[in-house]
Protein backbone atom coordinates (compact mmCIF):
# COMPACT_ATOMS: atom_id res chain seq x y z
CA UNK A 1 0.00 0.00 0.00
CA UNK A 2 2.66 2.46 1.09
CA UNK A 3 4.77 1.83 -1.99
CA UNK A 4 1.88 2.54 -4.33
CA UNK A 5 1.19 5.74 -2.50
CA UNK A 6 4.73 6.98 -3.08
CA UNK A 7 4.57 5.93 -6.70
CA UNK A 8 1.83 8.51 -7.17
CA UNK A 9 3.02 11.16 -4.79
CA UNK A 10 6.67 11.45 -5.83
CA UNK A 11 6.14 12.03 -9.58
CA UNK A 12 3.31 14.45 -8.87
CA UNK A 13 5.43 16.35 -6.38
CA UNK A 14 8.23 16.67 -8.94
CA UNK A 15 5.80 17.83 -11.59
CA UNK A 16 4.17 20.38 -9.29
CA UNK A 17 7.44 21.83 -8.04
CA UNK A 18 9.06 21.92 -11.50
CA UNK A 19 8.19 25.59 -12.11
CA UNK A 20 9.59 26.54 -8.69
CA UNK A 21 12.78 24.57 -9.37
CA UNK A 22 13.12 26.24 -12.74
CA UNK A 23 12.64 29.65 -11.11
CA UNK A 24 15.32 28.83 -8.60
CA UNK A 25 17.80 27.74 -11.28
CA UNK A 26 17.04 30.80 -13.39
CA UNK A 27 17.59 33.10 -10.43
CA UNK A 28 21.16 31.79 -10.17
CA UNK A 29 22.00 32.40 -13.82
CA UNK A 30 23.41 35.34 -15.66
CA UNK A 31 21.19 37.10 -18.18
CA UNK A 32 23.00 35.33 -21.04
CA UNK A 33 22.64 31.87 -19.54
CA UNK A 34 18.99 32.58 -18.74
CA UNK A 35 18.04 33.41 -22.32
CA UNK A 36 20.29 30.73 -23.85
CA UNK A 37 18.42 28.36 -26.18
CA UNK A 38 19.89 25.26 -24.48
CA UNK A 39 18.75 24.28 -21.02
CA UNK A 40 21.53 24.22 -18.49
CA UNK A 41 20.39 22.47 -15.32
CA UNK A 42 23.34 21.98 -12.99
CA UNK A 43 24.67 24.98 -11.07
CA UNK A 44 28.40 24.92 -10.30
CA UNK A 45 30.72 27.24 -8.46
CA UNK A 46 33.16 27.08 -11.39
CA UNK A 47 33.16 30.55 -13.00
CA UNK A 48 34.57 29.55 -16.38
CA UNK A 49 32.03 27.34 -17.98
CA UNK A 50 31.28 27.66 -21.61
CA UNK A 51 27.61 28.47 -22.39
CA UNK A 52 25.55 25.77 -24.10
CA UNK A 53 26.40 22.87 -21.77
CA UNK A 54 24.37 21.13 -19.06
CA UNK A 55 26.34 22.95 -16.39
CA UNK A 56 26.33 26.68 -15.75
CA UNK A 57 28.18 28.88 -13.30
CA UNK A 58 25.94 30.02 -10.48
CA UNK A 59 25.89 33.63 -9.36
CA UNK A 60 24.02 35.63 -6.75
CA UNK A 61 23.98 38.73 -8.95
CA UNK A 62 20.27 38.59 -9.64
CA UNK A 63 19.49 38.79 -5.91
CA UNK A 64 22.01 41.59 -5.43
CA UNK A 65 20.51 43.59 -8.26
CA UNK A 66 17.05 43.44 -6.67
CA UNK A 67 18.24 46.08 -4.22
CA UNK A 68 18.92 48.66 -6.91
CA UNK A 69 16.33 50.24 -9.21
CA UNK A 70 16.15 48.63 -12.63
CA UNK A 71 16.59 50.76 -15.72
CA UNK A 72 13.46 52.83 -16.31
CA UNK A 73 11.99 52.12 -12.88
CA UNK A 74 11.80 54.57 -10.01
CA UNK A 75 12.43 52.10 -7.19
CA UNK A 76 14.14 48.83 -6.40
CA UNK A 77 12.21 45.52 -6.08
CA UNK A 78 12.10 45.70 -2.29
CA UNK A 79 10.13 48.91 -2.43
CA UNK A 80 7.36 47.16 -4.35
CA UNK A 81 7.55 44.14 -2.06
CA UNK A 82 7.05 46.49 0.87
CA UNK A 83 3.94 47.91 -0.88
CA UNK A 84 2.58 44.39 -1.30
CA UNK A 85 3.26 43.52 2.33
CA UNK A 86 1.63 46.69 3.70
CA UNK A 87 -1.42 46.44 1.47
CA UNK A 88 -1.82 42.68 1.94
CA UNK A 89 -1.45 42.70 5.72
CA UNK A 90 -3.59 45.75 6.39
CA UNK A 91 -6.40 44.65 4.11
CA UNK A 92 -6.32 41.14 5.61
CA UNK A 93 -6.40 42.62 9.10
CA UNK A 94 -9.29 44.91 8.24
CA UNK A 95 -11.23 42.06 6.61
CA UNK A 96 -10.78 39.81 9.65
CA UNK A 97 -11.70 42.48 12.20
CA UNK A 98 -14.78 43.68 10.33
CA UNK A 99 -15.72 40.16 9.24
CA UNK A 100 -15.49 38.75 12.76
CA UNK A 101 -17.65 41.51 14.19
CA UNK A 102 -20.21 41.12 11.45
CA UNK A 103 -20.22 37.31 11.67
CA UNK A 104 -20.62 37.45 15.45
CA UNK A 105 -23.67 39.62 15.03
CA UNK A 106 -25.24 37.28 12.50
CA UNK A 107 -24.35 34.22 14.54
CA UNK A 108 -25.59 35.39 17.92
CA UNK A 109 -28.33 37.97 17.55
CA UNK A 110 -31.75 37.73 16.05
CA UNK A 111 -31.46 40.08 13.08
CA UNK A 112 -34.45 40.67 10.84
CA UNK A 113 -33.81 39.02 7.49
CA UNK A 114 -30.58 37.28 8.51
CA UNK A 115 -30.73 34.85 5.62
CA UNK A 116 -31.37 37.59 3.07
CA UNK A 117 -28.53 39.68 4.44
CA UNK A 118 -26.14 36.74 4.30
CA UNK A 119 -27.17 35.96 0.76
CA UNK A 120 -26.71 39.59 -0.21
CA UNK A 121 -23.22 39.57 1.28
CA UNK A 122 -22.39 36.39 -0.54
CA UNK A 123 -23.82 37.69 -3.81
CA UNK A 124 -21.12 40.38 -3.99
CA UNK A 125 -18.81 37.58 -5.04
CA UNK A 126 -20.94 36.48 -7.99
CA UNK A 127 -19.65 39.22 -10.30
CA UNK A 128 -16.04 39.04 -11.48
CA UNK A 129 -14.49 42.03 -9.66
CA UNK A 130 -12.84 43.34 -12.83
CA UNK A 131 -16.29 43.96 -14.33
CA UNK A 132 -16.57 47.03 -12.13
CA UNK A 133 -13.08 48.35 -12.73
CA UNK A 134 -14.20 51.42 -14.64
CA UNK A 135 -16.79 52.70 -12.14
CA UNK A 136 -14.34 52.01 -9.32
CA UNK A 137 -11.66 54.01 -11.11
CA UNK A 138 -14.07 56.92 -11.60
CA UNK A 139 -15.13 56.85 -7.94
CA UNK A 140 -11.52 56.70 -6.82
CA UNK A 141 -10.62 59.71 -8.94
CA UNK A 142 -13.38 61.62 -7.16
CA UNK A 143 -11.79 60.83 -3.80
CA UNK A 144 -8.18 61.07 -4.86
CA UNK A 145 -7.61 57.44 -4.10
CA UNK A 146 -5.67 56.18 -7.13
CA UNK A 147 -1.96 55.76 -6.47
CA UNK A 148 -2.48 55.43 -2.73
CA UNK A 149 -1.97 52.45 -0.43
CA UNK A 150 -5.29 53.27 1.21
CA UNK A 151 -7.07 52.87 -2.11
CA UNK A 152 -5.95 49.28 -2.60
CA UNK A 153 -6.42 48.42 1.07
CA UNK A 154 -10.03 49.63 0.92
CA UNK A 155 -10.65 47.80 -2.32
CA UNK A 156 -9.23 44.45 -1.19
CA UNK A 157 -11.03 44.72 2.14
CA UNK A 158 -14.30 45.32 0.33
CA UNK A 159 -13.79 42.30 -1.90
CA UNK A 160 -12.63 39.96 0.85
CA UNK A 161 -15.15 40.99 3.46
CA UNK A 162 -17.89 38.73 2.16
CA UNK A 163 -15.57 35.73 2.33
CA UNK A 164 -14.45 36.75 5.81
CA UNK A 165 -18.03 37.07 7.07
CA UNK A 166 -19.00 33.65 5.76
CA UNK A 167 -15.91 31.90 7.03
CA UNK A 168 -16.08 33.52 10.45
CA UNK A 169 -19.77 32.84 10.81
CA UNK A 170 -19.06 29.15 10.27
CA UNK A 171 -16.41 29.21 12.97
CA UNK A 172 -18.44 31.20 15.48
CA UNK A 173 -21.53 29.06 14.93
CA UNK A 174 -19.40 26.14 16.08
CA UNK A 175 -18.68 27.75 19.45
CA UNK A 176 -21.47 26.74 21.80
CA UNK A 177 -23.64 29.67 22.80
CA UNK A 178 -23.51 28.40 26.38
CA UNK A 179 -19.82 29.36 26.54
CA UNK A 180 -20.64 33.06 26.56
CA UNK A 181 -23.90 32.67 28.41
CA UNK A 182 -21.99 31.03 31.24
CA UNK A 183 -19.66 34.03 31.27
CA UNK A 184 -22.63 36.42 31.30
CA UNK A 185 -24.16 34.66 34.28
CA UNK A 186 -20.73 34.55 35.93
CA UNK A 187 -20.73 38.34 36.01
CA UNK A 188 -19.10 39.43 32.75
CA UNK A 189 -20.57 42.07 30.46
CA UNK A 190 -21.56 41.06 26.90
CA UNK A 191 -18.45 42.72 25.47
CA UNK A 192 -16.17 41.05 28.00
CA UNK A 193 -17.78 37.71 27.25
CA UNK A 194 -17.06 38.26 23.56
CA UNK A 195 -13.52 39.36 24.27
CA UNK A 196 -12.65 36.67 26.81
CA UNK A 197 -14.52 33.69 25.40
CA UNK A 198 -15.41 34.12 21.74
CA UNK A 199 -12.16 35.68 20.58
CA UNK A 200 -9.81 33.02 22.00
CA UNK A 201 -12.04 30.25 20.67
CA UNK A 202 -12.24 31.74 17.20
CA UNK A 203 -8.50 32.43 16.92
CA UNK A 204 -8.01 29.51 14.52
CA UNK A 205 -10.83 30.76 12.37
CA UNK A 206 -9.42 34.25 12.31
CA UNK A 207 -6.01 32.96 11.29
CA UNK A 208 -7.52 30.92 8.46
CA UNK A 209 -9.60 33.85 7.27
CA UNK A 210 -6.55 36.12 7.39
CA UNK A 211 -4.57 33.71 5.21
CA UNK A 212 -7.31 33.54 2.60
CA UNK A 213 -7.64 37.32 2.49
CA UNK A 214 -3.88 37.82 2.41
CA UNK A 215 -3.40 35.41 -0.49
CA UNK A 216 -6.18 37.01 -2.47
CA UNK A 217 -4.74 40.54 -1.96
CA UNK A 218 -1.17 39.37 -2.48
CA UNK A 219 -1.87 37.91 -5.88
CA UNK A 220 -4.33 40.49 -7.18
CA UNK A 221 -3.23 42.10 -10.46
CA UNK A 222 -6.05 43.73 -12.38
CA UNK A 223 -7.08 46.48 -9.99
CA UNK A 224 -3.55 47.05 -8.80
CA UNK A 225 -2.64 47.77 -12.43
CA UNK A 226 -5.66 49.92 -13.20
CA UNK A 227 -5.47 52.09 -10.10
CA UNK A 228 -1.71 52.68 -9.96
CA UNK A 229 1.20 53.81 -11.95
CA UNK A 230 3.54 55.18 -9.32
CA UNK A 231 3.23 55.17 -5.55
CA UNK A 232 1.39 52.01 -4.52
CA UNK A 233 2.57 49.63 -7.23
CA UNK A 234 2.60 46.03 -5.97
CA UNK A 235 4.96 43.22 -6.97
CA UNK A 236 2.73 41.59 -9.65
CA UNK A 237 2.30 44.95 -11.38
CA UNK A 238 5.99 45.75 -11.10
CA UNK A 239 7.07 42.50 -12.77
CA UNK A 240 4.51 42.83 -15.53
CA UNK A 241 5.81 46.34 -16.12
CA UNK A 242 9.25 44.98 -16.93
CA UNK A 243 7.98 43.62 -20.23
CA UNK A 244 9.31 45.59 -23.16
CA UNK A 245 12.10 47.06 -21.04
CA UNK A 246 14.77 48.67 -23.19
CA UNK A 247 17.43 46.37 -21.73
CA UNK A 248 15.34 43.29 -22.39
CA UNK A 249 13.46 41.38 -19.73
CA UNK A 250 15.82 40.71 -16.78
CA UNK A 251 14.81 37.07 -16.28
CA UNK A 252 17.21 36.16 -13.46
CA UNK A 253 16.04 39.13 -11.40
CA UNK A 254 12.39 38.34 -12.06
CA UNK A 255 13.00 34.75 -11.02
CA UNK A 256 14.74 35.84 -7.83
CA UNK A 257 11.99 38.35 -7.01
CA UNK A 258 9.19 35.90 -7.69
CA UNK A 259 10.81 33.35 -5.40
CA UNK A 260 11.05 35.86 -2.58
CA UNK A 261 7.44 36.85 -3.29
CA UNK A 262 5.97 33.33 -3.46
CA UNK A 263 7.94 31.20 -1.04
CA UNK A 264 6.79 32.76 2.28
CA UNK A 265 3.13 32.33 1.33
CA UNK A 266 3.71 28.79 0.04
CA UNK A 267 5.55 27.67 3.17
CA UNK A 268 2.97 29.27 5.41
CA UNK A 269 0.09 27.67 3.54
CA UNK A 270 1.67 24.25 3.86
CA UNK A 271 2.16 24.78 7.59
CA UNK A 272 -1.47 25.75 8.29
CA UNK A 273 -3.05 23.48 5.67
CA UNK A 274 -5.11 21.54 8.25
CA UNK A 275 -6.78 24.69 9.47
CA UNK A 276 -7.24 25.96 5.93
CA UNK A 277 -9.13 22.80 5.00
CA UNK A 278 -11.34 23.22 8.03
CA UNK A 279 -12.00 26.78 7.00
CA UNK A 280 -12.93 25.76 3.48
CA UNK A 281 -15.39 23.11 4.61
CA UNK A 282 -16.94 25.51 7.10
CA UNK A 283 -17.47 28.13 4.50
CA UNK A 284 -18.85 25.93 1.78
CA UNK A 285 -20.58 22.97 3.35
CA UNK A 286 -22.11 24.44 6.42
CA UNK A 287 -25.28 26.53 5.93
Amino acid sequence: MRGWRWLVIVPYFLLATLPLCWLFLTSLKTQEAAISSTASLIPTTDENIAPGGLKFSATGDAYRKLATPHTGKAHAFFHYLFNSVIIGLLSALASVVLGTGCAYGFSRFRIAGTRDWLFFIFSTRFLPPLAVVVPVLMMYRLFDLPNTHLGLILLYTAFNLSLAVWLMKGFIDEIPRAYEEAALVDGYSPFQAFYKIILPHSATGMAVTAVFCLISAWNEYGFALALNNAEAVTVPVYFAGLQGNIQGIPWPQIAAGVLIFVVPIAVFTVLVRKHLLRGVTFGTIKQ
Binding site: P176, E181, V185
Partner: peptide, 14 residues
Protein backbone atom coordinates in the same frame (compact mmCIF):
# COMPACT_ATOMS: atom_id res chain seq x y z
CA UNK B 1 -28.22 42.05 32.89
CA UNK B 2 -27.28 38.50 33.88
CA UNK B 3 -24.15 39.84 35.56
CA UNK B 4 -26.24 41.97 37.93
CA UNK B 5 -28.41 39.12 39.19
CA UNK B 6 -25.90 37.09 41.18
CA UNK B 7 -27.35 33.75 40.13
CA UNK B 8 -25.40 30.68 39.01
CA UNK B 9 -26.59 28.56 36.11
CA UNK B 10 -25.44 25.02 35.36
CA UNK B 11 -26.15 24.25 31.73
CA UNK B 12 -27.24 20.91 30.34
CA UNK B 13 -24.81 20.68 27.43
CA UNK B 14 -22.02 23.09 28.20
Amino acid sequence: LPAERDVALVFQNF
